[in-house]
Computed example of a mutant assay.
Amino acid sequence: MSSWRAAGDFPPTYPHPMQTLTLMLMDGSVPRRARGDMDACLAAALEGAEGRLRPEPDASLLYPFGLVMDADGVLRKAGQYDADYAYDATATAGALHHLAEGYRARAAELRCAVITYYVRMKEPSPGDTAPVDVRLRRSTDWRIDAMAPPAGTVDAVAMEAEHQSGCALAVFMPFAWQGPQQEFVVGDLMAVPAKRRIWPDA
């Protein structure tokens, strides 16, 4: 991994993720008017994910959730809470589809949306800015195998962030528990352009 850092006593580790990502995305893929909205949504999503991950490796069931910013700039959390994440191996993929469909139906009322879930991917090398070999991490996988991922791989929080202006990013924050005290650590943010699902014609 290019670098690990101990997560702070209180989340989020990345209070302004777009400041980090703008340096990485110098291609103009995120318009200036979208950066503030995406920054607020991503920071809130990261804070929520860290809050669930921080206590210990197997403290809680990890399930996908979403955040939207409405026309007035208010953030609201969403999720599919009636899904059986503990025993249904397809629940996570189904929830991602459900969240995206729900946001698309309300697209005219929203400015920005983020869908957050967990993945396992190839461990980045120093200087890597794009994730490789990303695979959905199901909640059932997490319960069966809560310990360290196989050599050469790393677990990560994945966020699909989309703005009504037409830009979409896939953002990744690697995480792990290291050392005898199982300290919670996070890696450098990574991002790549993503497919638009909520405002496909923007």
Rank of each mutant, 00 (worst) to 15 (best):
S3P: 00
S3V: 08
A6N: 10
A7V: 05
A7D: 06
A7C: 08
G8F: 10
T13E: 13
P15S: 02
P15M: 04
M18E: 08
Q19L: 06
T22Q: 12
T22M: 14
M24Q: 15
L25K: 01
L25I: 08
M26W: 13
D27I: 01
V30M: 00
V30Y: 10
P31N: 01
R32L: 01
R35V: 02
D37W: 11
D39R: 09
L42Q: 03
G48T: 02
G48K: 05
E50I: 04
G51N: 06
R52D: 11
P57G: 06
S60D: 15
L61Q: 13
Y63S: 13
V68L: 11
V68Q: 11
M69G: 15
D72K: 14
D72L: 14
G73V: 10
L75S: 09
L75E: 04
R76M: 10
R76G: 05
G79R: 03
Q80K: 07
A83W: 03
Y85K: 10
Y85W: 04
Y87R: 12
T90P: 03
A91G: 05
A91S: 06
A93L: 07
A93Y: 05
G94R: 15
L96E: 08
Y103W: 06
A105N: 04
R106C: 14
A107D: 08
E109V: 00
R111V: 03
R120H: 13
S125K: 14
D128P: 14
T129A: 12
A130C: 14
V134W: 01
R135P: 10
L136E: 09
R137D: 10
R137I: 07
R137T: 08
D141V: 14
R143N: 12
R143P: 12
R143V: 15
R143L: 15
D145G: 10
A146L: 12
A148D: 12
P149I: 08
G152R: 14
G152I: 08
T153R: 07
D155S: 05
A156F: 04
V157W: 08
A158G: 11
A158K: 11
E160M: 11
A161W: 12
E162Y: 02
S165G: 11
S165A: 09
A170K: 13
A170V: 00
F172S: 02
P174S: 08
P174K: 06
F175W: 15
F175I: 07
F184E: 00
V185P: 05
K195C: 02
I198W: 00
W199V: 03
P200H: 01
